[in-house]
């Protein structure tokens, strides 16, 4: 029980990813496959984000404080106050990649449909043989 509470974010991520992976491999409708792919990728994005997140932390922008004479005050920076920005930046790139893949996948699906007049794998395989 303690394990679940401590790691609930990862458990949710794993569930999401498994759903996505299952959909990509098991579903026969091409569009559903692509949707599952998006879910899978979202799972990974959540995984990264949650590993960098901290409770009560905010964005890692340090606001410079000044005293009444407009001199900068020396601040001690507490790691716990800021979320890890690296994972978010990485995921920004991953989102771009994901969108590109999804777009390309949908374009392909459209072509497949106009070629085979179907979006179901079984029917496409039938039309090929």
């Amino acid at each position: 029980m303690e394990f679940i509470i401590n790691y609930y974010n990862y458990i949710i991520v794993v569930i999401i990813m498994m759903l996505g992976l299952w959909g990509m491999l098991a579903l026969s409708n091409l569009v559903k496959k692509l949707i599952s792919m998006a879910i899978f990728q979202t799972g990974i994005i959540l995984f990264y984000i949650s590993m960098g997140a901290k409770k009560g932390a905010s964005i890692p922008i340090i606001k410079q404080a000044y005293d009444e004479h407009h001199h900068p005050i020396h601040q001690t920076i507490n790691n716990m106050d800021y979320a890890n920005p690296l994972t978010q930046i990485l995921m920004l790139t991953a989102i771009v990649v994901g969108v590109a893949t999804l777009g390309l996948g949908l374009a392909l699906t459209q072509r497949v449909y106009s070629e085979h007049k179907s979006l179901h794998e079984d029917e496409i395989l039938e039309s090929l043989s």
């Binding site: 990813m17 091409l30 991953a94 893949t101 996948g105 392909l108 497949v112």
Partner: peptide, 23 residues
């Protein structure tokens, strides 16, 4: 088209697993 689509699905799975490992 359909051959590439299958490659896209498998290729994305491969890349995602790699990304997960890096995570």
């Amino acid at each position: 088209y359909i051959a590439t689509f299958n490659y896209l699905i498998m290729g994305t799975i491969g890349a995602c697993f790699y990304l997960l490992g890096v995570g």
